[in-house]
């Protein structure tokens, strides 16, 4: 296990780097420190941003001594190393695979040498880990895509795909919380809103949570989409 580094990120943030890889154990160390700091924040801290292999800690340089904070962060990091990883919550996310909502499913399956149904089975088999949330509101970077499903991005990115689009490219799969452009392949669409300001809890997923996809048909999609419009989200499971 490499020793974490505390790097200066300007005058008001430190980046605590645990390593240089996308790896569940490395990511769990990031989340362990994040949880410890949330439970007992250090003086001057403003907020934290957990990512794949590092934690960005924002602080107010007028309300603390950054050198002392740096030492305290190193001590806190050492104290959380080896902590049992929190299991996170599991969310089962329904997906209408293929058809008009998943226009790339057949082409991707063909490129991978799989029947479309087999691609759906393999994409919905793993329990994916939420490594981090970033880039846009509520966008979860999921890890754990089976190696045999790795495929390059599209040659021609799409200027916009709808909220709920379930996407795959490289080692990544994700679903869009809002309409955005993408170079990823569109496998399907989920009625689940990962981000909805009208809900008391606007963000469905937290870093460290787990996601499992399952296939649904048109009627179920329509039913759940209407429910989601009224605030429905999947139940969290242990």
């Amino acid at each position: 296990m490499t020793a974490p580094k505390v790097l200066a990120a300007g005058d008001a943030a430190f980046s605590i780097e645990f390593g240089d890889a996308i790896d569940p154990a490395l990511n769990a160390r990031v989340h362990a420190l994040d949880r410890a700091l949330a439970a007992a924040p250090l003086p001057g801290m403003v907020e934290t941003v957990p990512t794949y292999r590092s934690l960005l800690v924002y602080f107010d340089p007028l309300r603390c001594d950054p050198a002392a904070l740096r030492e305290a962060l190193l001590a806190r990091t050492a104290a959380t190393e080896g902590a049992a990883p929190a299991p996170g919550r599991l969310y089962r996310v329904p997906v209408r695979y293929g058809g008009a909502m998943g226009e790339d499913l057949e082409a991707v399956a063909a490129k991978l040498g799989l029947a479309p149904d087999e691609l759906v089975r393999r994409h919905s088999a793993p329990e994916y880990r939420v490594y981090m949330i970033g880039f846009s509101p509520g966008l979860a970077y999921l890890g754990g895509l089976p190696a045999e499903l790795v495929i390059p991005r599209r040659d021609d990115p799409r200027p916009a795909v709808p909220r709920g689009a379930v996407l795959m490219a490289g080692q990544q799969t994700l679903f869009y919380p809002v309409e955005m452009p993408t170079g990823f392949h569109v496998l399907g669409r989920t009625p689940v809103r990962a981000f909805d300001l009208a809900r008391p809890e606007p963000f469905l997923l937290k870093p460290g949570d787990r996601v499992r996809f399952h296939a649904i048909g048109d009627a179920e999609y329509a039913r759940l989409d209407a429910a989601a419009e009224r605030g429905w989200t999947p139940e969290a499971e242990a």
């Binding site: 300007g10 008001a12 980046s15 941003v49 990512t51 794949y52 960005l56 924002y58 970033g134």
Partner: peptide, 27 residues
């Protein structure tokens, strides 16, 4: 490997031209 972008972070993509990331930056 993607990480958090602090206020005023100056990233340098492949063309070598720096971009300072401001208040509305991606996280």
């Amino acid at each position: 490997i993607s990480d958090g972008i602090p206020l005023g972070g100056i990233q340098v993509p492949g063309n070598g031209q720096p971009i300072a990331l401001m208040r509305d930056r991606q996280t």
